[in-house]
Write a protein that binds this DNA or RNA. Structure first.
Lengths: 230, 230
DNA sequence: CCATTCATTATACAGTTGCATAATCAAAAG
DNA sequence: CTTTTGATTATGCAACTGTATAATGAATGG
């Protein structure tokens, strides 16, 4: 772990003084630092867990990525397992916050519902592109059964999956998706939307394309919509 | 690693005698055992690597899964890295062997080419269903850049990806796929085909469905073909 | 039958792992 | 300023890691 993090662990104590914003309505200076450290560890955990999987990630690597002493992981999150759960909770709460796919209610023409479906799918792809670590982390856990997968399923995956299925069924009722198995269609659509960004390192090596690039991303979205929303 | 393997390490030496088939045209009894051990290690490596990723898999777990002493991994494969490469080589060689998607040559009606495309896609899904460890292992390596991903790309992934792109372009020429970015379409189709089987443990928990079941699999294939080959 | 070969096992070792506890030291409170 | 609090660091430990080397013992070739 040679990558340096914006916040070095020594910097805080090495600095002559840290007056900072105390009058800024903010509470304790100490409280702010505490939350910053907590957040830095969580972000580092997202990165390392998503790239190496639970067993492949070490708490010392996560601490180094966060620019923090490894003992702070126990201090803030108690154990590697609880840190992982905090990371997963963050991912799904952010997803519902940024997506909150409300079903297109009220009276709409079929054309309007079609456009709403296209917009919803586009928004989902944008989420996958902006936060590839979400799908990366979950895929690594879902390739084998484990207590962690059970926990994630009970707390988040089931709810999200059934919401996605409701979305698929709505499209089917409008003839926008073929009348096939809806769980199968969920995995078809989600897999089609995620893989381009989850496997971005491979895409870069094989095609010399950056899925994060806006032009490339729009081409992917166009292809996806052309295939799915007929 | 508590799962017991069919071949226990002690069994071979504990047995009173192993007459076995010597006259069966087979060479040495010893040579046979050697190849059996070698193969057992490789199969165990496929399973463990695909479920835990390179860093998350331990050579001792692989040896235990194979029912073999862990020192034999060095004896047969020299190092963990070389064992991983042998596993990847096995996967891609099996894929070309079982798939070898020859382009539908010769004069064919468009309807015949459409049926050939559907058959090819069905065969690919069947491969994904029968050998989910292939996609699992590769996904775990492709979510981050590494020397291993570089090696796999240069030796196998590039070739396979460009073959898939040629397949996509052929379908586009027939109007069977929309005229969108062909690399994007490759990842859309591959992701759509793989995820249902790669994430089988999650599918079982969330939907109480077994992607390995023939009925479930046929429903998935039908959905996939309905979406892609119009 | 014996000597040899070599697949397998036993053991060792340095580096890493998650986790725990004590020491430190700056900020907060008085 | 002094004391107290608590965020951070230093250190330790047992288990595990990949890898290396020596010991073992059964099949092989004579």
């Amino acid at each position: 772990m040679t990558t340096s993090s914006p916040k070095r662990p020594a910097a805080r104590h090495a600095g002559k003084s840290v007056p900072a914003a105390k009058s800024l309505g903010g509470p304790n200076l100490r409280e702010q630092q505490k939350e910053a450290t907590r957040a830095a560890i969580l972000q580092a955990a997202l990165l390392i867990f998503s790239e190496h999987g639970y067993n492949g990630a070490s708490t010392r690597d996560i601490a180094a990525q966060a620019g923090v002493h490894h003992a702070l992981i126990k201090y803030y999150y108690q154990s590697k397992d609880l840190l992982w759960r905090a990371a997963v909770s963050f991912l799904f709460e952010r997803q519902t916050r940024e997506l909150m796919l409300q079903a297109p209610t009220g009276p709409m023409t079929r054309a309007a519902r079609r456009e709403a479906a296209r917009a919803a799918l586009r928004r989902y792809v944008l989420y996958c592109a902006r936060h590839p670590e979400h799908a990366r982390l979950m895929v690594q856990e879902s390739v084998r059964d484990s207590a962690r997968l059970q926990w994630a399923t009970e707390h988040f995956i089931s709810r999200a999956s059934h919401a996605a299925e409701a979305f698929v069924r709505a499209l089917q009722k409008d003839g926008l998706l073929p009348p096939a198995s809806s769980p199968a269609l969920v995995y078809i659509i989600v897999g089609a939307a995620q893989s381009f960004y989850t496997l971005a390192p491979e895409v870069r090596r094989v095609w010399n394309l950056d899925p994060g690039d806006e032009t490339v991303m729009n081409a992917h979205i166009d292809a996806l919509l052309a295939v799915f929303i007929r």
